[in-house]
Amino acid sequence: MSDTETMLEEFGRRAAALGVRVDRVPDSAAAASTVQGTATDARVTRLVVSGEVRRRAPGLIQSIEASLDVETATDPAAVRDAPLALTLAHTAYAETGSVLLAEPDLPDRAVGMLSGTLVVVLPTGGLRAGLEDAVAGLRAIASQPGGGYATLMTGPSRTADIERVLTVGVQGPGKVVVVFVDHLL
């Protein structure tokens, strides 16, 4: 197996243990199919997307728009409790099954915070092995003029505050889907 495949396998194992669905697809059209399938499962036709994913993956958004009502996040109140949302990850880490969300703007951040089901896409090349590989990225994000806001998201929102019984989906997304795209356009 190649390094990428090994990392994908570990990422998938770690993320699956947390209840995250992980897909690897060849291109944006296939990624769009995954998003559409998730929408069908959730019985929704509306998709809120971050400004970042619209800017960085216009081909993907265009493919999705063929079948879903796509709305770009503009403020948190508009995103509040959106059933389905899509955002772009900076990188992902096999060691923990985490994706790194870099969200300087509040509307983009709201997409990852306030939706019910969150689909995260990123280029397959953005997958790294261990958390130490996150250091350079975190440092770069934090060193931008005006700072930055980044989150290593590891599974869905959860709590075990009552009698240690795990309940998924509190203030953040209750379902997370991660899609690695070999050629993300």
Partner: peptide, 20 residues
């Protein structure tokens, strides 16, 4: 703490949200 490899959200905040 909770026998997790990482908590669900590990957030790194540098400076305020724009406009905040």
């Amino acid at each position: 703490a909770t026998a997790q490899t990482l908590t669900s959200y590990t957030t790194f905040i540098t400076g305020p949200t724009p406009g905040h």
